[in-house]
């Protein structure tokens, strides 16, 4: 069990003022079997109205609108999380079915397929989790962490082709490999101790439980991983979706701080 303090700050700066800005945010850690959230503070500015809901993956969302003209939009989320990564209860297999199938971002193209063919056969591995861990190990040796070469719409296949990218890319490629063998697996967006941006890792369905792997660091996740959301891929976990009138160019600042208490 580990207690952490976290703060997430996101600001959009618009070159030209915008109006009738409709947003949907997905950046709020919520309590579940593995993590308890305390002292939560949320501030969204500006807003005309906002309303909370859970999406079909169970992620907490806040949607709303800012009708008046504004040139920046900011979101602050702070709180404390108490994490017990092994606290999860059994999940029925039918609920994991959807996570076996590729999405646009996790579709294996020729490069991932070719790589997959060079790997050890799946018969050598006794469980989904062991198999996924093997994929994670070989991916870690093959791939380099490089910032700025991929973006939020880069697919796993595209990132694998240049053998470099960031946490989102590591996660997508691992998911693509697992899904080639119909192993149910999900994408997780969250925070880990340190300062910077949000992090991403994966969950592998194994004998009724979701088990966690962080392919960027080539390790299993521990009690310091604060989950924000999960889904089939990064798109299901998108932190901010919005439409508005006006705006010209926009610049996004994100600052995440998480630390052990």
């Amino acid at each position: 069990m580990q207690r952490l303090r976290y703060s997430y700050h996101m600001q959009l700066n618009f070159e030209e003022p915008v109006r009738e800005h409709h947003f949907k945010l997905r950046c709020f850690p919520s309590s579940d079997e593995r993590q308890k959230i305390f002292n939560e503070y949320i501030n969204i500015y500006p807003t005309h109205f906002s309303s909370a809901e859970k999406d079909s993956f169970g992620n907490m969302c806040i949607y709303g609108a800012a009708n008046q003209t504004h040139d920046h939009f900011s979101v602050d989320v702070k709180g404390e999380a108490e994490i017990n990564i092994n606290g999860q209860l059994k999940v029925e297999a039918y609920k994991a079915g959807i996570f076996k199938y590729e999405t646009n971002l996790t579709k294996a193209g020729n490069n991932i397929r070719e790589f997959h063919r060079t790997l050890e056969p799946s018969a050598l591995y006794t469980s989904n989790f062991e198999r996924a861990k093997y994929f994670m190990n070989v991916l870690y040796d093959e791939f380099s962490y490089v910032q700025g070469v991929t973006g939020i719409f880069t697919t796993g296949e595209e990132a694998f082709t240049i053998r470099s990218g960031v946490c989102q890319d590591y996660a997508h490629i691992l998911l693509a490999l697992c899904r080639l063998e119909r192993i149910p697996c999900r994408y997780v967006a969250g925070m880990i101790p340190g300062e910077g941006a949000t992090h991403a890792w994966t969950e592998i369905y194994d004998e009724g439980k979701w088990r966690l792997l962080d392919p960027t660091h080539n390790r299993e996740c521990d009690d310091t991983y604060i989950k924000i959301s999960s889904g089939r891929d990064a798109q299901d976990c998108s932190i901010n979706q919005g439409v508005f009138y006006g705006g010209g160019r926009q610049r996004q600042e994100v600052k995440v701080i998480a630390e052990k208490v």
């Binding site: 409709h22 949907k24 919005g242």
Partner: peptide, 14 residues
């Protein structure tokens, strides 16, 4: 997904 159409209609539908 692109929120084109009527923003949030799906949210209130759900």
């Amino acid at each position: 997904e692109s929120l084109i159409g009527i923003p949030h209609i799906f949210d209130i539908y759900s």
